[in-house]
Design a protein around this nucleic acid. Sequence first.
DNA 1: TTCTTATTTCGTCGATTGGCGAAATATAGC
DNA 2: GCTATATTTCGCCAATCGACGAAATAAGAA
Lengths: 121, 121
Amino acid sequence: MRRETKLFKALSDPNRIRIIKMLQERELCVCEIADILDLAYSTVSKHLAVLRDTEMILDRKAGKWVNYRLNPDAGDEQVRELLALVQQWLNDDATVRADRAAVRSVDRDIICNITPKKENT
Amino acid sequence: MRRETKLFKALSDPNRIRIIKMLQERELCVCEIADILDLAYSTVSKHLAVLRDTEMILDRKAGKWVNYRLNPDAGDEQVRELLALVQQWLNDDATVRADRAAVRSVDRDIICNITPKKENT
DNA sequence: TTCTTATTTCGTCGATTGGCGAAATATAGC
DNA sequence: GCTATATTTCGCCAATCGACGAAATAAGAA
């Protein structure tokens, strides 16, 4: 019972739904998600922790970033079923569409003020 | 977005999940549900209002009782999908099993201290 | 019409939650 | 080893939520 309600609770916040819809597009780091959602890093980190704790998403270090991605092959069938459900939902939602467009253009190098590496000439 | 998170939120409380699992068994009134859940009538009434507000359940008057039942043919596909999901889940859960057994024996006439009608002799 | 009763609504309380900024942590780069 | 930085954790605040009892409502029964 706790497991199921915990899964539903994780999906009951709009920002966490937005995060999942964004991660359907591609892997993202905290600073990119925070940039798109326009939330504090700490808030995003907390939301991601909730989702990671349900195993709906996975994290891994990539340089100085921590990347988050969906976990569609989660061992838990309930997680898989809910992720499949949310995958089908909200694809015509205006906010989701805007977030998706943002995901395609968001750039962590710009957010973190990283100078592009010089091309060898 | 609001619609989806509202549905997930409705399912994120253990007692509301228990109510839905009980209603899979049969239609019930507030006093029967309160008896099984061991909650105040007002609390049960509020939980039922949350569920009715999502259209996952329907109510109708039956004498002095208000009966509640599942709405598996809800107009909203998302409601139908979630009800189908919860139908498959938790069927081995100890609490759900106990609640189901209680549903089969709970009797509103006993709860409300109604004297059975005398049989014609 | 009045009385009784199942239910709903209201108000209060303590617990939980989502937001933020600050502090702490992990670790890449030099 | 030190510095810089992305992220996580902590602490606080306001809003929300689930529990209860009391009051209000709806309506059945007499």
